[in-house]
Design a protein around this nucleic acid. Structure first.
Lengths: 240, 240
DNA sequence: GCCGATTTGTCCGTATGTATC
DNA sequence: CGATACATACGGACAAATCGG
C-alpha cells in the first residue's frame, strides 16, 4: 500500500485527535507549525486538514486557527452505513456475522427496473438475495443486482462470504463512488418471513448505486434493515 | 458575494453537466483543456473538480480522464432531510408549509441531556418544539435546543417563521458544520398527538448537532419525521 | 481606531510520479 | 515505447480575517 505524504499526516493528526491529545474545542498547531513538524510544504498540510474537515473532525477559521470538533462516540453507538462492508461493521462492533444466501439467479433488466436502478433495459444481471445475521438475529435483507459482464464467475459460495472481497481482491476492480437513498417502507411478507422484525412493522430501505473505478454503474442494491439496529451518521459542511 | 475563481469554474462545469452538455458517462475535457478554457492554473481547475467529485457529479480516473456520473433526478423525487431547509423543500415541491410552535421555554442542561446533546451540564438553553405541516398534514416534529448565550432575543414569533433566517441574517452568525444521526424509533404518545402518523407506528429521528463559524456547538435538534415523506440522499466516496 | 503579527484562503508556476492508451 | 492524463509535492505571492497592543 503506497501511502501519500498527505495521507500519513492526515492519519497522524486524526490519531492524535482521537487520543484527545488535541482535545475537543482546542486549536490545532498552526499550519506553519505543522509544516515544520512534518517537514513538508504548506499545500501538503492543507490537504491533510481538508480531509479532517470533510470527516467532521475539525473546522477551520480564517485568521484564528483550526478547531477540533471531534467528540468520542459512546460505545453503544452502532453504525450501519458508509461504504463499510457488513463484515467490517460486525467486526468493529465485536458481533458474530452470518450471511445466508436465499436467492441466486440471473435476470434481465426490464424497462421499469432500469428506471429504478439506473441500469439499461436488457442488461444481464446477477440477482442475489441474502439475509444478514448479527449475533443470531436476522437484521438485514440485502438484494443485490450486479452487471454480469463486470462480475464474472460469481457463485452462491462467494455470495455467502463477501462479494466485495471477491470484486476488489479477486477481480481487482475498485469501487469508488456510491449514491445512497434512505427511506422507510412497510415490511412486506417477505421481510416478515426472512427477518426478525421485533416490534416494528416497517424496514429502513437503503437503496444504493455503486460505480467502479471506470465510472460505470455496476451494482444496484436494496438493503432492508430491521429498524432497531439501524443508525446512519453523516457530516454536512456548508459551502460559502 | 465575493466569488472565488475555483468556485466559478465549479459552478460553470456543474451547470454544463446538469444541462447534459457533458452527458452521463462522458468524459470532461482534460485538465489542460480546462486550464486554457478558464485561463487559470492547474490547481484551480483541480480544486473545482474535487468539489464535483464530492458532489457525486464526476469521478476522476488517473491516466484516463474525468467521467460524468451525474444523472438528472426524476421530478417525483421528494426529499426531506437533506441539506435543504423545510421551507426550501416545500417551495421546490410546490407545497404549502406551515409551522406551529407548540412549546417555547428555557431549560438548563442536565448531566444526562448534556451527554446526549454535546452541551455542557448547566448550559442555559432555549427549548423550542414545533410541528411542521405540509399541505395540511403534520409531518415533522422539531425539537430544537439553542445555547441562549449565542441566540439572544429569540421569540415564539421568530420560531414560527425561520430560526435559521434569524440566526444567519439578523444575528449574522454563520453555520459551518453539522453532524447528523438518523435512526428509527417507536412513535411516542407525543408523536401520535402532534403528527398525522398515517399507517406507521414509528418515526424517523434525525438528531443534529450544529457548530457555528467559531467551531462551537450552539444547537442540538431532534427532527421526528412521519416516515411516508422521509427521504435522505447521500454520496459516499471511498478512500484509497 | 489603527497597526502589525499571526493565521487561514486563494492562486500561480513548476517538477516529478504513475496509470492508461 | 511515447503521448496523454491525472496525482502528488514544492515554493512563492498576495488577500482576508483575527487578535493584541
Amino acid at each position: 500500500m503506497p501511502k501519500a505524504k498527505y495521507d500519513g499526516i492526515y492519519h497522524s493528526i486524526k490519531k492524535r485527535i482521537e487520543a484527545q491529545d488535541y482535545p475537543y474545542q482546542s486549536l490545532l498547531p498552526s499550519e506553519n507549525t505543522l509544516i515544520e513538524e512534518y517537514a513538508c510544504s504548506r499545500n501538503t498540510v492543507r490537504r491533510a486538514l481538508a480531509e479532517l474537515v470533510a470527516d467532521g473532525y475539525v473546522q477551520t477559521m480564517q485568521g484564528r486557527g483550526v478547531r477540533v470538533i471531534y467528540q468520542p462516540v459512546g460505545k453503544t453507538t452502532f453504525t450501519i452505513g458508509g461504504i463499510e462492508t457488513f463484515q467490517e461493521t460486525a467486526r468493529r462492533n465485536h458481533l458474530r456475522a452470518v450471511t445466508k444466501v436465499t436467492k441466486f439467479e440471473t435476470v434481465i433488466a426490464t424497462e421499469q427496473f432500469a428506471a429504478e436502478s439506473g441500469f439499461s433495459e436488457g442488461d444481464e444481471l446477477w440477482a442475489v438475495q441474502r439475509v444478514r445475521y448479527l449475533d443470531g438475529k436476522a437484521l438485514i435483507l440485502d438484494i443485490n443486482y450486479f452487471l454480469k459482464e463486470f462480475v464474472p464467475g460469481l457463485t452462491p459460495e462467494i455470495a455467502a462470504n463477501s462479494i466485495y472481497d471477491y470484486i476488489e481482491n479477486t477481480l481487482g476492480m475498485q469501487i469508488i463512488t456510491s449514491k445512497r437513498r434512505i427511506t422507510v417502507e412497510h415490511a412486506t411478507a417477505r421481510d416478515e418471513n426472512l427477518l426478525d422484525m421485533g416490534t416494528y412493522g416497517c424496514v429502513v430501505v437503503v437503496a444504493n448505486q455503486t460505480f467502479n473505478a471506470a465510472g460505470l454503474l455496476f451494482e444496484y442494491t436494496q438493503s432492508r434493515h430491521q429498524p432497531d439496529y439501524f443508525c446512519f451518521q453523516d457530516i454536512a459542511t456548508r459551502k460559502k
